[in-house]
Amino acid sequence: MSAQPPPRVKPAAAADAEARSRADAVRDAERRWWRRAVEILWRPRPVFAALADDDEDDVVARQEPVLAIILLAGIGGILLTPAWGTMLDDWTVDWLVLAVVTFVGGLFYGAFGYLLIGLAIWLGARGVGVTGPARQARHVLAFSAVPLAVSPGVTVPAALIVYGADFFRSGGADEGAGRVVIVGLGLVFVAWTFVLLVLGLRTTYRLPWRGVVGTLALAGVLVAAFAVLPTLL
């Protein structure tokens, strides 16, 4: 008795099965990257080591965590600028408007910093011999910025508890040293971000310390040049 041949799978069904399998793999990877976005605060080395993987599905899985990080990091950054200390001086600005402006401003600040500083870091890394793609440099920057992204959860409650609405107005209880204390607290998160960026360059790119210093020095020069260029045009 002859063996029956295996049932023939239609090409369309095979393609659908492969697409479902890939989608499941991407969803699993997305969950891992959301966990890593939190774990980087206390276990940064494994996260930066994982960024060295340039598999396309893995890269796609990072997109949503990266977007959330750059938005929140942008909000954390603009809250430390002097302009946000006078927002409520305008009588047309209430708390709802302040929240919307902060969200939109954070989106633009985060995206601009992500693209500009990410480009500078990539060019700086290339200057010391790294051949990785620009996307990888941007992702190292994004995950390094997690401390800055979580900083509003500390600085804003602290400012509101101690100074209330005065933190967003000129004069008042936060005038002088009061605002400096809150901004100084925020700068601790900026410093933490910088430390993670150093560790990320060293781990993801496997750079020696001189390579990390060279990358950051070149990136700093490029960012300064980008900042000065509009005034020269």
Rank of each mutant, 00 (worst) to 15 (best):
P6C: 07
R22C: 04
A23C: 08
A23E: 13
D28I: 04
A29C: 03
A29I: 08
R31C: 01
V38S: 03
E39L: 13
E39C: 01
W42L: 05
W42I: 12
R43T: 07
P46L: 01
A52D: 15
E56P: 09
R62T: 15
R62P: 09
E64F: 10
P65R: 09
P65H: 04
L67P: 01
A73G: 02
G74L: 00
G74V: 04
V93K: 04
L98W: 06
L98A: 08
G110R: 00
A111E: 00
F112K: 10
L119E: 09
W122K: 07
R126G: 15
A134R: 09
A134D: 01
A134P: 13
S144G: 09
V146Y: 00
V146T: 08
L148H: 06
P157I: 05
V162L: 10
D166P: 12
R169P: 11
G172R: 05
G178N: 04
V183A: 12
F189P: 02
F189D: 00
A191S: 09
W192D: 02
L199A: 04
G200S: 01
L201V: 02
T203V: 08
T215G: 07
T215R: 05
A217F: 13
A219I: 11
A219L: 05
V223E: 10
F226H: 05
L233I: 14
